[in-house]
Amino acid sequence: MQFKKSDLPKILDSMAKEATVLAPMKVKGNSKFAPWGTEGELDFGAQNVLLPPKDCLFPQTEKMYRFETDGLKVNDFEVINESRPTVLFGLKGCDMQSILCMDDVFLTKGYVDDFYKKKRDDLLTVCINCTTVAKECFCDSMGGSPNGHAAADIQLYDLGESYQVKAQTEKGQKAVDSWQQYCNKDEGEIKEIACELKVDMDGVPEKLAGMFEHPIWEEISRKCVGCGICTFLCPTCYCFDIDTTKDGAEGTKFRCWDSCMFSEYTRMAGGHNPRPSKKERVRNRFLHKLEYFKERYDKNLCVGCGRCVAKCPVNLDITSFIDQVKEVASHE
């Protein structure tokens, strides 16, 4: 079945009655997933929205619990774990894949992160296939596809004037059932496309496993300015810090995004820092993306969304790095 693009606002409106609907929007010059019904315009361009969708599952700053102290005593203690039904509408395949990476981190390996789980359970994912790609896109080199993602609750296919609808989960089917009044029979053809930027990941994780001491790290990290753009715009970077705010006797514990590119990230209380310079930090980031995560969760932690390629101020580019890894002789 399919619905007309002109009916999209009505569908979004209806969903927004029961859930927060986050859609790719341009808001005051910034492109991000923003609540439908607030200021801003829908933006389904070739380029991904600048800010990744991870914020809705893993907010940049998230309150965890609050407490009150009185002398030696802790007088009040309350866990804050708020969530409401949310729809992520208009995800591209790369961003959908990033959610699967986050699921692995927050929901597996012995501990379930309650703050993440609650929001994840409340989330409905709606993917749209890409009809054009940006020059920085390379998802199909990283195991993804611009043509959709099987893990989305609902997959939409852009047919030009309308969207073809495919419910892929029970949750997705339930939502689609309520769109019936806008839907017609299928016609038209789904066009498949491919990314222009290609990298060859074949053997890269394995090769990197022997390259920890390789001179390449010194060389590529020279130009890094050590900012957090790559990590904060990355849909899969999940590292966080935990800190406290105090206001008199009241305190709140919160967690917030952290970046492995910052020197403070691994600095220990006594001052020792196992990753003292940008060489170690860039190495850890690329190895985490391309080797460590693969070893631990059997996925690439880079989904090829191209945000860091587009936004790094000095073009420290993961695709060029992969090319370079293919070329250099293993050191060990």
């Binding site: 005051k28 910034n30 940049q60 300015v225 050590g226 900012c227 957090g228 753009i229 904060f232 101020p313």
Partner: peptide, 16 residues
């Protein structure tokens, strides 16, 4: 306030 509301604190401005 509108300007700084958007800041993501990547510190790129400082670092360059």
């Amino acid at each position: 306030s509108n300007v700084f509301d958007k800041c993501i604190r990547c510190y790129a401005c400082r670092n360059v």
